[in-house]
């Protein structure tokens, strides 16, 4: 069900006095619950809950040809499916824009941060490389799927092991995991999305808050304050001053999220 107009108005008027429906501060996340290794078949996997929002993310690896423009690098593919089981708002069928965008937002944060050392995933230059597939599924949608997916993606990568590869028969032996992990860098990309509602900026919106959001800015960045990817969405403009404030808040939220998830990394 769409959020009723009167609820939207109430959210806005509450926010103008600095309050949110669930009593959170503007830069405060809901509780984050994490479980890794949720799939026996995936090379790495994670379940991330932010409040009532839940996603599961799995990493699969396979051996394939490199792209012609990067013959010595492994491939990375991030896709997402917004499952009809996770919300009455999602329908089956070919992916619509929100699902496509979700995959691309996470893809870019991971790719641009060079979190995965793709060169080390080259088996034979120009011929064989590892392909990393990160697949995101929504299980319950109550706002902020993007940030949950981002956390899920880095956790599944962190916990993944390469399967055995039979060079002679050119076959991946799934189920026979090596103790080799995916080569990752220290610079961990954490995706945090800020929303502008009325004149206020918040993070981690619930579904109702997301419905009344006018502008959304998703930033993939490190705890050290380096930014790797940004995307603005939504139908309203944002002033340079608001943007400056948003950047500070976004950075603070990232540090807090990191302290919550670091024990799983």
């Amino acid at each position: 069900m769409e959020t009723a107009k009167v609820t939207g108005e109430r959210i806005k008027s509450y926010l103008s006095t600095g309050k949110r429906f669930d009593g959170r501060k503007q830069d405060e996340f809901r509780d984050i619950t994490i479980e890794t290794g949720i799939s026996e078949k995936a090379e790495g996997s994670a379940r991330v809950k932010i409040g009532n929002t839940e996603v599961i993310v799995g990493v699969k690896l396979s051996v394939s040809e490199p792209y012609p423009d990067s013959p010595n690098k492994g491939n990375l593919m991030v896709t997402s499916e917004l499952l009809p089981l996770s919300s009455e708002r999602f329908e089956s069928g070919p992916p619509k824009f929100p699902a496509i965008e979700l995959g691309r937002l996470i893809d870019r944060a991971i790719r641009e941060s060079k979190f995965i050392n793709l060169e080390k995933l080259c088996i034979k230059e120009g011929e064989k490389v590892w392909s990393v597939f990160i697949d995101i599924y929504s299980i319950n949608y109550d706002g902020n799927l993007i940030d949950a997916a981002g956390i899920g993606a880095i956790l599944s990568l962190k916990t993944a092991y390469l399967p055995k590869y039979d060079q002679e028969n050119e076959k991946v032996l799934y189920g026979e995991h090596t103790d080799q992990k995916i080569p990752l860098s220290e610079e961990l990309p954490i995706v945090i999305t800020s929303h502008k509602i009325g004149g206020n900026i918040i993070v981690d919106p619930t579904i109702e808050e997301e419905d009344v959001s006018e502008t959304r800015i998703t930033i993939g960045g490190s705890v050290e304050g380096k930014l790797f990817s940004i995307q603005k969405g939504g139908i309203k403009e944002i002033t340079v001053e608001e943007m400056d404030k948003l950047l500070e808040m976004n950075d603070n939220a990232r540090k807090k999220v990191y302290s919550q998830i670091k024990k799983y990394l």
Partner: peptide, 22 residues
């Protein structure tokens, strides 16, 4: 000077980004 669209790919600090906007 109101921002209606911004995207970024790469690596940058918050201070540098503020310069970019200006």
């Amino acid at each position: 000077g109101d921002i209606t669209h911004i995207q970024l790919d790469g690596k940058i600090s918050i201070e540098e980004l503020k310069e970019v906007v200006q």
